[in-house]
Design a protein around this nucleic acid. Structure first.
Length: 951
RNA sequence: GGGCGAGUGGCGGAAUCGGUAGACGCGCUAGACUCAAAAUCUGGUUCUCGCAAGGGAGUGGGGGUUCAAGUCCCCCCUUGCCCACCA
């Protein structure tokens, strides 16, 4: 018998697939297309690691599965080559990054081929190839034409080590994402893409994407839409105004100060002579501060008074204008109105600087009822300061735990009512008032009295002085209905569920700032109005007065694409003294990266390209006069924002792509990756939306289904890293003798694809053993005498069941369970005697196994498929189909439970009726011993599954 | 601080619609083959009481809904990821 030796069969089939170009595809209108792609790799010198092996094993399983279904499957590959690692390597070695890149690509291409990934290599692309970046530049010029690419002087994150500007998403907790050094702010003229124009469109489509929820949420949070109003505050003594943005215009009457960001343009003109020095010092230090420094400080509020006042447009009251770094320059208008009564940050600021606090919202809880009866009441929280526990009344099923509560009669004072209720309900009489809230409102339905109520409540906090108690005095309907308990803080949080009581505790004990909904107070004509209604009416009124308007803002900023680096696509702009920034005309593209001697930036904020004077000095495309080329290059994310379109039409020399071709292949049906949750995916979406508007594609969203997988960690559970020396090289695993099939099958068997997993050398050995069993099984069949016996049902049943299971699992991308089903199937076949069934049935049973295993382990599948006598490749044969009739078992197992506990199993034929099964269950000896002579109260039958006898 | 996940044997994980918890694999273990070992094959393997038949407990903790809960609801704990003074 021939031994299973992957290195004998894998390279052989890889060569065959290559020669027959089985993975190369063209447009075919007679077949359904399927486009599957992994996020293209950055070709590093280290080659691919198991993370890549995992990612592309998913890609390939999906590709092969659909090819076996007869679909026209596009599975391309390319290289994301521009970027800092390539440039840093070039700076170190002095050789062009293009040279090292080419070597790395050749190496990695070999790795992918040795893994047997079914890629259409004729479509290979490389973002640093002039034939590619020519079109990246062309897209830039189109965005420029549409006003979507622009230049602006702005403060930018600057990495002092890499000597480059960083995008917001490249700053992680105040540090450079690449080298980890603390970043600084620097003012520079930079190129931006105006992604903010598409904020709403990008947000709108998120709901409909078939993407993991966490990625969708991350994108929505990134866009960060919030609806509110802009409100103008007139400066005292001038005609100037300060505009603030607020999502809570309903709290306008409570605005007692204004705060500007240190970078706010009005700061200089506002500050009075008296405060000029303080302000200048504060602004200077605030702007210099990096995020990490700000974060390391506690959240204590800092700020300075400008000496100026503005007027609250609602109250006419003067409000002092302050400057503080808790207000961000880049969001909203860079100025806020401080409403300390209803915003925690404003409250902290007001406390720190002794600013007035005006309450304008009375909390309202519960669900408003029809025609409620109005009542007045109190909530009394009694704290025992010695044990730090809180007096609570447990109403059991009726309402859980509450504090002391009760109605306030006629003119009874609030405190008096509370004292009375405490004594009546709990007997405690010696308490001292600590604090109390203003009026609150609560809506509920009093079931005991069958009446809807809206109560006005006051909450009070008392400290218990001593344990002395009197007789309780309860109303008739309260007798014996509750018990008095002392609860710890944790128990209060867990057990006091009633909204009014929980809110009372929050306000009085936790000293929370109330920012929920409620009823307006201290708000002039708007008193008594609900907060939600007031949000609309106050803005409407401001609009009438021309001092405010509704406004939607987004957290997302425009996409900064300038990089002061050599190794990127040059921005195709020529600066002319007369015509300013002029786009390079299409027929002069690409703007080639010139070869230079020294790639290092010199810390002047310019790329090394600035020193290539022959290249920089050129003529203006408009007037022919002397002009200079832009020396910034584009962010690598620009290159990767359209490559999924270029794959469809990779060799087009006339245009970036032919819309007809792209409209056939795109959008991508499955996009697989485990990186780039936000930026890359958002940028790809942004460009595709623009292309749709330009008529270059006929879809808005580039990616139908996003498959976001986890990481593969090292055997010790930590991240694989070169420095720790725990990196597993896929090629090594293959060459150790396990082979590509075992590697691919193992990474998919480790667990669900969205979970992280740790590499296990024992684990891959187990999968190799499985493939070896498959091999041995096939060889045993080949060498048997293939006698026909005649009863093939058992074999067929196994075969058709596994077809259904694997097919189902594929549709939910549950590869680990599909593989485990194939293992079970193989184990079952092992147990059957080879000569116990017909030759025909065996050939089919094994043939199906090969077809089902092929997406994971294509080489062994192809080899055995051929041994079984097939002359065409597996992927040219249709995926097996199961026959429901063949899956029906001769006998099914019915579980018998008594009171929900498993007591017996019945084996019955599937057509046994309910009554017969119930009778069998009740007659079972073991069941009878549990039922005894009691009469079953209920017998529940779940068809085909179980009987539950309730006694 | 906020948002979103996750928590099941010694380990990775399975249980797809509320219906046999622990599939499959690793590890461990007993046996077969062997002079022996490796490889391979066969069996066992949640904990616990019991010679056994069988019983009891059990999916991070507490409560609830249900004939029935890993699965649904409430609270808490732990942990991962993302965001983080966004008005």
């Amino acid at each position: 018998m021939k031994r299973y030796n992957p290195s004998d069969i894998e390279p052989k089939w890889q060569a065959t697939w290559d020669e027959q170009k089985v993975n190369e595809v063209t447009i075919d209108d007679t077949r359904q297309k399927l486009y599957v792609a992994g996020m293209f790799p950055y070709p590093s010198g280290a080659g691919i690691h198991t993370g890549h092996a995992f990612s592309y094993s998913i890609v390939d399983a999906i590709a092969r599965f659909h090819r076996q279904h007869g679909l026209n499957v596009l599975n391309p590959m390319g290289w994301d080559t521009f970027g800092l690692p390539g440039e840093n390597y070039a700076i170190k070695t002095g050789t062009s990054p293009a040279v090292a890149t080419a070597t790395n690509i050749a190496n990695i291409r070999k790795q992918f081929k040795r893994m047997g990934i079914s890629i259409d290599w004729s479509r290979e692309i490389n973002t640093s190839d002039p034939e590619y970046y020519r079109w990246t530049q062309w897209i830039f010029t189109k965005l420029f034409e549409r006003g979507l690419a622009y230049q602006k002087e702005s403060l930018q994150w600057w990495c002092p080590v890499d000597k480059t500007v960083l995008a917001n998403e490249q700053v992680e907790a105040g540090r450079c994402w690449r080298c980890g050094s603390i970043v600084e702010k620097k003012s520079m003229k930079q190129w931006f893409f105006k992604i903010t124009d598409y904020a709403e469109a990008l947000l709108e489509e998120i709901d409909d994407l078939n993407w993991p929820q966490k990625i969708k949420t991350a994108q929505a949070n990134w866009i960060g839409k919030s609806e509110g109003a802009e409100i103008e505050f007139k400066l005292e003594g001038t005609d100037e105004t300060i505009t603030v943005f607020s999502t809570r215009p309903d709290t306008l009457f409570g605005a007692t100060f204004l705060v500007l960001a240190p970078e706010h343009p009005l700061v200089q003109s506002l500050v009075t002579a008296e405060f000029a020095d303080f302000v200048a010092t504060y602004v200077k230090s605030a702007i210099k501060k990096s995020d990490i420094e700000r974060m390391n400080e506690s959240r204590e509020k800092t700020g300075v008074f400008t000496g100026s006042y503005a007027m609250n447009p609602a109250t006419g009251a003067p409000v002092p204008i302050w400057i503080a770094d808790y207000v961000l320059a880049g969001y909203g208008t860079g100025a806020v109105m401080g409403v300390p009564a209803h915003d925690e940050r404003d409250f902290a600021f007001a406390e720190a600087f002794k600013l007035p606090i005006i309450n304008v919202i009375e909390p309202e809880t519960g669900t408003p009822q029809q025609d409620p009866e109005a009542r007045q009441s109190i909530v009394a929280i009694v704290r025992n300061p010695r044990t730090n526990t809180y007096l609570s009344i447990n109403w059991g099923q009726q309402g859980g735990n509450l504090f002391v509560g009760g109605g306030r009669e006629n003119d009874e004072a609030v405190v008096a009512t509370a004292l009375r209720e405490i004594a009546e309900e709990t007997g405690y009489k010696n308490v001292s008032l600590v604090s109390q809230t203003g009026p609150m409102h609560h809506n509920y339905f009093a079931h005991s009295k069958n009446v809807a109520r809206r109560i006005e409540a006051h909450a009070l906090l008392f400290d218990l002085i001593d344990e002395e108690r009197t007789e309780t005095a309860l109303e008739a309907d309260e007798q014996g209905k509750f018990t008095v308990e002392w609860l710890s803080e944790a128990d209060v949080q867990a057990k006091v569920q009633d909204e009014l009581h929980a809110t009372s505790y929050d306000l009085l004990v936790n000293h929370s700032i109330y920012h929920g909904e409620g009823v307006l107070t201290n708000s002039g004509a708007f008193d008594g109005m609900s907060t939600s209604q007031a949000r609309e009416e106050i803005v409407a009124w401001l609009e009438q007065e021309k001092t405010g308007r509704t406004k939607t803002t987004y957290k997302m900023r425009d996409w900064l694409i300038s990089r002061q680096r050599y190794w990127g696509a040059p921005i195709p702009i020529i600066h002319c003294e007369i015509h300013g920034a002029v786009a390079v005309p299409e027929d002069q593209l690409p703007v080639m990266l010139p070869e230079i001697a020294d790639y290092a930036p010199k810390g002047d904020g310019l790329s090394a390209l600035a020193r290539a004077t022959d290249w920089v000095n050129t003529t203006c495309p408009t007037c022919g006069g002397p002009a200079k080329r832009e020396t910034d290059t584009m962010d690598g994310f620009a290159c990767s924002s359209w490559y999924l379109l270029r794959y469809a039409d990779p060799h087009n020399t006339e245009q970036a792509w032919d819309p007809a071709v792209v409209n056939y292949w795109n959008p991508v049906d499955y996009y697989i990756g485990g990186d780039h949750a936000v930026a890359h995916l958002l940028y790809v979406r942004f460009w595709t939306h623009v292309f749709k508007d330009m008529g270059l594609v006929n879809f808005k969203e580039p990616i139908q289904k996003l498959v976001y997988h986890g990481y593969i960690n090292a055997e010790d559970g930590t991240k694989m890293s070169k420095s720790k020396g725990n990196v597993v090289d896929p090629l090594e695993v293959i060459e150790q003798g396990y082979g590509a099939d075992a590697l691919r099958t193992y990474v998919l068997f480790m667990g669900p694809i969205d979970l992280d997993a740790a590499w296990s050398s024992k684990g891959i050995a187990g999968v190799y053993r499985f493939l070896n069993r498959v091999w041995v099984l096939a060889q045993q069949y080949q060498e048997s005498d293939k006698t026909f016996v005649g009863h093939d049902e058992a074999l067929r049943r196994l075969q058709h069941k596994v077809i259904r299971k694997v097919t189902d699992d594929f549709h939910r991308l549950s590869f680990n369970t599909a593989i485990s089903a194939l293992m079970e199937y193989t184990n079952e076949l092992y147990k059957l005697k080879v000569d116990g069934f017909s030759d025909e049935a065996w050939a089919e049973a094994l043939g199906s196994l090969m077809q089902l295993i092929a997406p994971f382990a294509p080489h062994i599948a192809e080899e055995i498929w051929q041994q079984l006598g097939h002359t065409s490749l597996i992927q040219e044969n249709p995926w097996p189909v199961w026959d429901d009739a063949l899956i029906v078992d001769e006998a099914i197992t019915i579980i018998v439970q008594v009171n929900g506990k498993l007591r017996a199993k019945l084996s019955v034929s599937p057509d046994t009726n309910e009554d017969a099964i119930k009778t069998l269950a009740l007659e079972d000896e073991h069941v009878m011993s549990f039922v005894g002579d009691k009469k079953p109260a209920k017998v529940i039958y779940v068809p085909g599954r179980l009987v539950n006898i309730v006694v």
